[in-house]
């Protein structure tokens, strides 16, 4: 379970001081599915990075299962990320020289999983997202939707508690978007994940059980009765 208390993030862009997050309080229960929306530059991605332990708040607490990520050393934070959190990025962020299977394996490397087991688990993960026939393909040999499915397999192969997705369908056409959302929803249900997703897509937002909107660093959360 996530608990964010008075989380503030300030940084400077040139000579300008930017308040990306301004005293945010937020609770995300285990197994929750939260969609974050808001205008560009409103602080959505910054919030996601705080949740993922990729960045630290200027002030406040980001507590995951009783541990304040803001206070952890870099090494501990890296461990938390490798064991508990899966990421899916808008640009897929696959290693272009590695095959689909090897890309998925990269998520298991920090856990010290042996090579043989790595290969098997990566193959299973790719199978589960419908890419069992594409294990040896390089990212450049696959469509955008297939690349994003590889990224989803990479995020889920180590069975994290939390899945954080930053505009996962932002670079995809409508058909692909639905395909990816179907995969993500299926995984969320099957694995009982806590799923937090940033999106601009209103169609996706409408289906979310909880919707958070960030504007100028402030957040409002509402339950979505329509979902």
């Amino acid at each position: 379970m996530y608990e964010l208390r008075s989380v503030t993030k300030r940084y400077t862009r040139g000579k300008e001081a930017v308040h990306a997050l301004d005293g945010i309080d937020l609770t995300i229960a285990d197994g929750d599915r939260l969609v974050i929306q808001g205008p560009t530059g409103g602080g959505k991605s910054t919030l996601l990075q705080m949740l993922g332990g990729l960045d630290r708040p200027t002030s406040g607490e980001v507590v995951l299962d009783g541990t304040d990520l803001a206070r952890l050393s870099e090494a501990r934070l890296t461990k938390v990320r490798s064991e508990n959190i899966g990421f899916v990025f808008q640009s897929f962020n696959l290693i272009p020289t590695l095959t689909a299977q090897e890309n998925v394996e990269t998520a298991l490397v920090p856990l010290g999983v042996k090579a043989k087991e790595r290969r098997e688990r990566a193959a299973q993960a790719l199978e589960s997202v419908g890419l069992g026939e594409r294990l040896g393909h390089l990212p450049g040999e696959m469509s955008g939707g297939q690349q994003q499915r590889v990224a989803i397999a990479r995020a889920l192969v180590r069975q994290p508690k939390v899945l954080l997705a930053d505009e996962p369908t932002g670079n995809l056409d409508e058909g692909m978007r639905d395909e990816i959302m179907d995969v993500l929803e299926r995984m969320w249900k099957e694995l009982g994940l806590t799923f937090v997703m940033v999106t601009h897509d209103s169609a996706i937002a409408r289906k979310a059980p909880r919707l958070a909107t960030i504007r100028k660093g402030s957040i409002t959360v509402r339950e979505n009765a329509a979902s």
Partner: peptide, 15 residues
């Protein structure tokens, strides 16, 4: 981006 992603996945700086 490549190294940032790997670090996000939990690769330590040393690796």
């Amino acid at each position: 981006r490549e190294f940032g992603t790997l670090k996000a996945l939990g690769w330590r700086s040393g690796r």
